[in-house]
């Protein structure tokens, strides 16, 4: 499996939030969810780490490591980015506005 699994809000079986660092969130334009956006996870030096496509409800999710991350979204209606601080394992929520 190397493709993106379904980006719904339910975490896959086997996810252990005491161990895993999960970054999850939504892509929004004027408060409305944007599906089909290309969501890129960039590390603290701005280097690409991973990319997923947001679900119809605008949701996305990454399994990462603790640290400082940038989440950047590309969509037909525009691009946007936001930073996320993941201090440790657990579920870290964020929102990315595009337009």
């Amino acid at each position: 499996m190397c493709g993106a699994p379904a980006q719904d809000t339910d975490l896959p079986t086997g996810t252990d939030l005491a161990r895993d660092t999960v970054l999850a969130g939504r892509v929004l334009a004027d408060g409305e969810p944007v599906g089909g956006a290309f969501v890129r996870l960039l590390d603290s030096s701005g280097e690409f780490t991973a990319e997923v496509v947001s679900s119809a409800s605008g949701d996305f999710r990454f399994f990462a490591a603790p640290g400082s991350w940038t989440v950047r979204a590309l969509s037909r209606i525009g691009n946007g980015e936001t930073s996320v601080q993941a201090g440790g394992p657990g579920l870290h929520h964020t929102e990315v506005a595009v337009g």
């Binding site: 499996m1 190397c2 993106a4 699994p5 896959p12 086997g14 996810t15 895993d20 996870l41 590390d43 280097e47 690409f48 780490t49 991973a50 990319e51 997923v52 999710r61 990454f62 399994f63 990462a64 490591a65």
Partner: peptide, 19 residues
Amino acid sequence: RSPDEFSGKIIAPAHLPQE
């Protein structure tokens, strides 16, 4: 692979459960 996979910090890309 990504630097974190290379260094051994993680085994799979960051959008997948580790396996």
